[in-house]
């Protein structure tokens, strides 16, 4: 009995990994978004809801003159940066929300991966 339950669970896990969640809604998949050399998840950044955040918090290129194109033009296309893409953007976006929440400011941590991992042509 236990063996059958475990076998069914493992099969369900593999099916979920390959096919994704059966529930309706956004189902982001890894693909070559933003001309990335490797498949990545899509990303979104909602500028209007971040209007109170200092632009320089994210836009380092305004002060270090490292480019004037979209974020992804460097962060997914340059090999030395692409390898750190997930760590850098999780660190930038998620940690900022976590820090603000911890300090009592508005803006709790993002509740779900799909809150950010949807297609945005401007990022």
């Amino acid at each position: 009995m236990m063996r059958a339950v475990l076998l069914a669970g493992v099969i369900a896990l593999v099916a979920l990994a390959v096919l994704g969640s059966p529930w309706p809604g956004e189902h982001p998949e890894r693909a070559r978004y933003y001309d990335s050399p490797e498949p990545i998840l899509p990303m979104r950044f909602d500028h209007p809801s971040h209007a109170t955040v200092n632009c320089l918090t994210c836009h380092h290129e305004f002060v270090d003159d490292s480019g004037n194109d979209t974020c992804m033009s460097c962060h997914v296309r340059r090999p030395e940066l692409a390898a750190q893409l997930e760590a850098q953007f999780h660190g930038l976006c998620r940690d900022c929300h976590v820090d603000r929440n911890a300090s009592g400011d508005a803006g709790g941590p993002p509740r779900a991966c799909v809150a950010c991992h949807v297609i945005d042509g401007k990022i």
Binding site: L6, G9, V10, A12, L13, L16, A17, V18, G20, S21, P22, W23, G25, E26, H27, P28, E29, R30, L41, A112, C113, V114, H117
Partner: peptide
């Protein structure tokens, strides 16, 4: 098993963490 199934079932993007 519940822990492993929980995330891909509740957050569609997290299934890529099993690939």
């Amino acid at each position: 098993l519940a822990h492993a199934l929980w995330f891909p079932l509740t957050d569609a993007a997290s299934h890529v963490y099993l690939l």
